[in-house]
Design a protein around this nucleic acid. Sequence first.
RNA 1: GAGGGUGUAGCUCAGUCGGUAGAGCAACGGACUUUUAAUCCGUUGGUCCAGGGUUCGAGUCCCUGCACCCUCACCA
Length: 518
Amino acid sequence: MNQDSDGKDPREARREKLRKIEEMGIDPFGCRFDDRSFIADCRQRSETEIKWTRQDGEEVPLPDFADENLDYRQWKADNGPGAESGPTVRVAGRIMLSRDTGKLIFANIRDWTGDIQIFIGKKQVGEENFALAKLFDLGDLVGAEGRLGRTNTGELTVFAEKLFLHSKMLEPAPDKHAGLTNPDLRQRMRYADLAFNDGAMQAFLDRTKIVKSIRSTLDRDNFCEVEGPTLHVVPGGAAARPFATHHNALDMPLTMRIALELHLKRLMVGGMERVYELGRVYRNEGISPRHNPEFTMLECYQAYGDYGTMMDLTEQLIVDAIDAIGGGYIRQFDGKTIDFTPPFQRATYADLFQKATGIDASDEAAVIEHAKKLNLETEGKHPDVIRNEIFEEQVEDTLEGPIFVIDYPASICPLTKRKRDNPEIAERFELFVLGMELANAYTELNDPDLQQQLFETQLQGLEEEDSMAKMDHDFVRALRYGMPPAGGLGVGIDRLVMILADKKSIRDIILFPLLRPE
RNA sequence: GAGGGUGUAGCUCAGUCGGUAGAGCAACGGACUUUUAAUCCGUUGGUCCAGGGUUCGAGUCCCUGCACCCUCACCA
């Protein structure tokens, strides 16, 4: 780069200022800063603690600063002579905007609670502080101590008496208005995205609230949070391609887990009657706006419940999550309206199939014929697999929801208990919202012999890796020790957050999505 | 994996018919003690994603590759 010390390159200009700050004997990377106030708290305190007192000692109520047409300078003239008083505060944050009018600098700083303006007057802060302020750049982390008050235009302001530099930013700042919009850079440099894009943090804070809410709902119902292994010898509990890895000392192949299910059920056998895990799972598959190779699942299991119990729980979890982030049960996603007011709609798989295709789901010949019309591959596939492909193609995408689809064909549910009066139907539901599967729940299969048989019988037309029916001998042995009848629920946390935060891409709610290296 | 789009200054983006690179912001110099994307005057800044080709001449046309975005497929 151009290293003329005329500072043409923004990076070099910042380095040059860094050197000057060091020459002033100031550490450009700051130190502990006690007694600082969050900006949101300053804003709140300003409402009661900024006062206007006339010279005669009478306190005059301040005008409405939210009023766009307010001329505070005029108001002061009309209500004076007098003086404004306010508490002294210490604030810290990143410089987002700055206006230098010579011997007076206005800087807008931001901490994670909000923005506030700082008034830096040469006379008010003194020569040394002012010289430091002249070396501030957009993006620097700074601090100010001073009186909280209002400028002539009514803007809430910290009138600085002392200034601090907490960290000099050595990279050029993004466009001060547009921010960092390049989606690649936003994901690669999430720090810059969060720091410079208005509202970028909100979806992530909502995510945290939703996860906290889920924990609190489950804890309230006496569920116990546990941590299962993420390195699995047999990748089970879902139909997905796992990431392969290897343990050196044991010279043993391992996979990253694709689901939480089988270990949680082992705990049910052990007597942990209500367990859940909120954890990361890994699937070695395509990346899309709705798929990231690692994502977060909730799975919970309740002894002596069934899938109906889980339906109630699902509604409760979602309702509580919405209460946690606010905004009400009627929500927008991508311009569409979704009503989460419970109870959610319920419909059986067979009815939805009948309605969408006009044919009876149990009429195998008609199903196969219909599949051929849709150009679906039917050769060598189990009729239930074909039927499910039709269901996905013609039903799932049309489900606006929230809707519980209940009672799935048993053959595509190898971990699910069958209906007592109809072994062809499994007690399973999936919750759909705008074509997205948000939750999946079963009355759990606890018959070890049937489980073993289902593991052994590969579904026709499915590769082993495409089937959930992967033999896990230890799991079957666990079932032989006796697992109570139970309801189990899985929730895709990322998709729930997407829908509740109105974000179309999973990358907008995963802080560090997987990217190719630069 | 298939199709489409994008890639130009630190950031956000223009760039006509193929004719020697543009703006705003940022940066640098100057003026300004109540500004609000401050304003005003001046200046600097380019491996036009990479490589190859066509051409007298390529940011522009062609080919290959890379990255990202969108749609589809995969993800039961």
